[in-house]
Design a protein around this nucleic acid. Sequence first.
DNA 1: CAGAGGATCCTCT
DNA 2: GAGGATCCTCTGA
Length: 202
Amino acid sequence: MKDIKILPKEFFLKRNVIEIAKDLLGKIVVTQLDGGYTSARIVETEAYDGATDKACHAFPNKLTRRTEVMFKEGGRSYVYLCYGIHHLFNIVTHEEGSAKAVLIRAVEPVKGIELMKARRKVENLRQLTNGPGKVAQALGISTLYNDETLYEENGLIYIGSEIDNVNFEINISTRIGVDYAEEDAMLPWRFYIKDNPYISKK
DNA sequence: CAGAGGATCCTCT
DNA sequence: GAGGATCCTCTGA
């Protein structure tokens, strides 16, 4: 088992959300929820920017009850219900007052795989976490865990890096499922680990 | 307070 | 590849 070092709060601040979305690739999400420990390697992310990006719920810097958490200081969760069924897990970035976040679209299961299978009611490893709704379900993340800080030891959810992180190539594409965002649907703000079997789509 | 629509997933064809 | 599930959020009156 590799050691995991928790990312400090600073990781989520004072940098462009694009850079953070890229840097989150290869990092480890740990959850300690519902009496179980699960961890998974992030293999696919998307950046959202409430100031300029029509695909973002907080565009154009629109403050509502739902988007409120995105305006808070980075390093916390933004979880919302999509299509009435799926809980989607995002990581808020930047300083207080700017509404930006990174959607975790796919992960590679590391620990607690049996628990993930039970939560997903799926046996096939590749089907376990290769999509944003699946990620949240497998890790036990729901809107109950909106606005949780992500950088605390023994937190419910935290993000860590492996000591001996392997190298990988990053692929870039347009984001999935945001056709309604007109020209912003063309932004190359989706990032994923090349050839990783757990990404949601080619 | 009604109506519309969605950062998805699963099933069936 | 198409369509349905399902419910919360936001809008406008």
